[in-house]
Nucleic acid binder design. Sequence first.
DNA 1: CTGTTAGCGCGTTCAC
DNA 2: GTGAACGCGCTAACAG
Lengths: 335, 335
Amino acid sequence: MSIQAVARQAGVSVATVSRAFNQPDQVAPATRRQIEQAAQALGYLPNASARTLRTQRSRVLGVVLPTLVNPVFAECLQGMAEAAAQAGHALMPLTTDYEVAREEQAVNHLLAANVAGLVLVVANPSQSGALRRLQARALPYVLAYHQHPEHPCVGVDGEQAVADLVARLVAQGHRHITMVSGQRSASDRAEQRCRGYQRGMAAAGLPAEPVLEVPFMAQALQDIVARLRRAPVPTALLASNDLLALRCLRAAHLAGRAVPTQLSVVGFDGIALGADLTPMLSTITQPNADLGQQSIALLLQALADGQALGPSASRTLAHGFRQGESCAPPRTATA
Amino acid sequence: MSIQAVARQAGVSVATVSRAFNQPDQVAPATRRQIEQAAQALGYLPNASARTLRTQRSRVLGVVLPTLVNPVFAECLQGMAEAAAQAGHALMPLTTDYEVAREEQAVNHLLAANVAGLVLVVANPSQSGALRRLQARALPYVLAYHQHPEHPCVGVDGEQAVADLVARLVAQGHRHITMVSGQRSASDRAEQRCRGYQRGMAAAGLPAEPVLEVPFMAQALQDIVARLRRAPVPTALLASNDLLALRCLRAAHLAGRAVPTQLSVVGFDGIALGADLTPMLSTITQPNADLGQQSIALLLQALADGQALGPSASRTLAHGFRQGESCAPPRTATA
DNA sequence: CTGTTAGCGCGTTCAC
DNA sequence: GTGAACGCGCTAACAG
């Protein structure tokens, strides 16, 4: 079922069939209809591999993500998928499970697959061999959820977002705000958010407590419960992501502290699921699907222009705040 | 950066380079090391498109899913991704957003991309044009989350699972159990689960109430609240999926009914997130990642055997029950 | 064990 | 406006 069959069926040459698909205006209308009809009848689908081999440009975009189990990235991928599909492109997503070694492996895979460009969410752009390789190849790529002066990025200002949030909590009367984060060194974004906490506390004239780092999700719950039982007792927990915020809610329950009356919990990410919880999760919202869409849009634009992207193409998307129900003024402030 | 460059660099022919990669044992160890070294030095990566074009068999598997926003499918895709990656295959996932028309479109896309096989989650296998096309092409495919006599499937027995669950609820003392489902006609699986409810109630000698169908997620909450305020008042809500169960929990809250003391809520799916909620979601668990893994395993086996799969290859995976905290005996039973 | 060669299906010159 | 022919990078015969 190749272009040859269509050509034979339509009584023209393969070249004309090719043109009919790729430069329709260069083919006489009558001939074109003949060809379209023949293609239809034979159920002809142009062979993507041959086309890619010939043009050296595929219609597949590579995606490198930490995981799909975190809805943040699933939502983002969904956004990418829509944008890509609309433009007639397919996606090839690979996950790294937060392991740096697998980032490079994934990029190799995608390079071999002749992807036209890539969207990546990595641990740390500054020390990524994978990115260096991409730059060397002049293959267009975009970093999602990052902000970095040397790369084209589509992200949000996590530091500002957290600093704003701290200000909001302080305005509500909170004085003892504890930040709960995954391993800071493991991720760019975690570090950025922790900096926002420190800046926010400093701006409010409050002493920043040490960040509670919970390197392993499996043990996060116990770590948080332990923290809640230790002085100084926080009136608010600020989780560096929504999955961690869920653990905070549960830890509060186990520690016997009602949310939000006895303890406020706020997250970061804005996963859609959070809005369906009870209490509805208060969280900094990122436009996850948009992040994906815009990343793809940037990539497609670069492909159209025939240029790799530079850092100047970066976009910072607006974050928001979902009020939710897990955050309220502390009791001491209202009493 | 082609195989030619490597051949030149290593001082051998292209055929030998090709062999060194694909049938290493047919090449002399010394030559092989030469080639590996040359490839390494040049950063050579075999061109997948050329390989696919030549062998007529790609290392990409197509995946058709309703959505990634539902963690069930994100978890499943993650399982597929791991299994595929381990075998050196990549995935090309397309989402349909539950629209049947997009199923066919997705399959066309994947066929054109020369995928070696497909995993699909569709609305209804019996009336799927996409499936018929696949069968005609003798391209291996597997249906995930389905059970169907005419197709190779990897699924769970949803009907049995729900019937068992009803029995469990009845044993706890529940008599008024209301099933909450999405649009039954929109999905195979919803219908299967509703049948399980009816069978379970019948087996318990209880009258099955009409299923509360909530066609639109956006309005589900209001519909459920309304139901909770209408007689006969249920002591347990059985949601046909976990996302709906979350709405049930919230509806209970809005209707002023404490969970689980005044109302039990159980879900279906076993999304990982459910275990981190407070109250922890009681639910029928499906091995979502396994479903994905096994679907891929089946596909890879078919590819190895050079055969399309028949219905007899189907597997039914065991479901489970997560006790959680959203389900307990009704008050009337303990009083 | 290694080299030569012929296409896989397509887009793109260059003639006509 | 259309056709003939080349080559993208690779693998699979077939020779040697």
